[in-house]
């Protein structure tokens, strides 16, 4: 049995040991707490990074640089200096009784190349009109037209679409009938169409130049549309031989006609203020002057002249 002093010494010694153990335990506990806290913070940061909350935000400037890069936009294929158009529409008249007419339609997209072609061919003799309208917003191309068989011959008209040819060819020597039809070209984005024409039988063009306007007739005369039911309203001006002729409502008698300029293909089927007009005509110079041309407008039943 220990006496009081021995118990006292033992108690004091144990107390010092307990105090030291407690101090070490506190240090260990605080160290573990700090390590666990740091790990939790790292896990939280990694979690936020993984969820994208801490990733760099794409600024408008960087978006612009991406758009300007070749990764998103294809080169300007049609060479017009513009990256693309949001919408486009064209009206094409392509029916002839004598000449082979080739209309090439290129469809260019700035974001994804979309090509389409159509081929119309008919044999026989007759006249006809037709239009082709491209609506980029609905991504459809509408082709419609009518033709009259002048000789009463039966004929055929074919039209096919090939989405890889990048060209539309319309060839008609005799068009018997063309039924309004609609073709659909699937384009993922907006497109721009350009229409070019290469008339065959170059000696019959007599130097008529290809117009820059959208409305184009095979022999090289282009008519600028106006919104009226008069002739001047139908065609406010004509472009021929490098000159612009302005329409009038005056008829020209046949004895006033001068040299035959060569085009009998002045054919148009237009819609003005909701009314359709079927126009077919030859182009003659007016005798004794080079300041006007006469154009036969079948729907008007005579020759009307266009002056410079």
């Amino acid at each position: 049995m220990k006496n009081t002093d021995e118990i006292f010494d033992s108690v004091m010694k144990k107390s010092r040991e307990r105090a030291e153990q407690e101090r070490k335990r506190n240090i260990r506990k605080s160290t573990i707490t700090a390590v666990v806290g740091i790990c939790a913070a790292l896990v939280a940061v990694l979690g936020l990074w993984h969820s994208g909350l801490l990733k760099p935000v794409v600024t408008p400037d960087s978006v612009d640089s991406l758009i300007e890069s070749d990764d998103l936009i294809e080169p300007d294929e049609n060479g017009d200096g513009e990256a693309g158009e949001d919408s486009a529409a064209s009206t094409t008249t392509a029916v002839t009784t004598r000449h082979r007419v080739t209309i090439t339609t290129s469809v260019v997209s700035t974001r994804r190349a979309v090509t389409a072609s159509q081929s119309n061919a008919a044999t026989g003799t007759g006249t006809g009109t037709g239009t082709s309208t491209r609506n980029a917003s609905t991504r459809t191309t509408s082709v419609s037209g009518t033709a009259t068989a002048a000789t009463g011959q039966a004929g055929t008209s074919t039209k096919k679409t090939n989405a890889t040819d990048k060209s539309t060819t319309a060839a008609a020597e005799t068009v018997v009938s063309v039924s309004p039809t609609t073709e659909t070209v699937t384009t993922p984005t907006s497109v721009q169409e350009t229409v070019n024409s290469e008339p065959s039988g170059g000696d019959e063009t007599n130097g008529w130049e290809q117009p820059d306007e959208q409305v184009y007739v095979d022999s090289g005369i282009s008519l600028n549309e106006a919104r009226s039911t008069s002739v001047t309203g139908l065609f406010s001006s004509a472009y021929c031989g490098g000159y612009t002729y302005y329409a009038s409502d005056s008829q020209v008698s046949s004895d006033q006609l001068g040299d035959y300029i060569g085009s009998t293909t002045l054919t148009s089927w237009v819609t003005v203020d909701g009314s359709s007009y079927h126009v077919v005509g030859d182009v003659y110079a007016i005798a004794g002057t080079d300041s006007a041309v006469a154009v036969h407008l079948s729907d008007r039943g005579g020759y009307y002249w266009f002056s410079k």
């Binding site: 006292f8 004091m12 144990k14 107390s15 307990r18």
Partner: peptide, 14 residues
Amino acid sequence: AEELTEEVFVELVV
């Protein structure tokens, strides 16, 4: 019991 008695006094000190 003696050891536990010492523990009682250690408890008082600590």
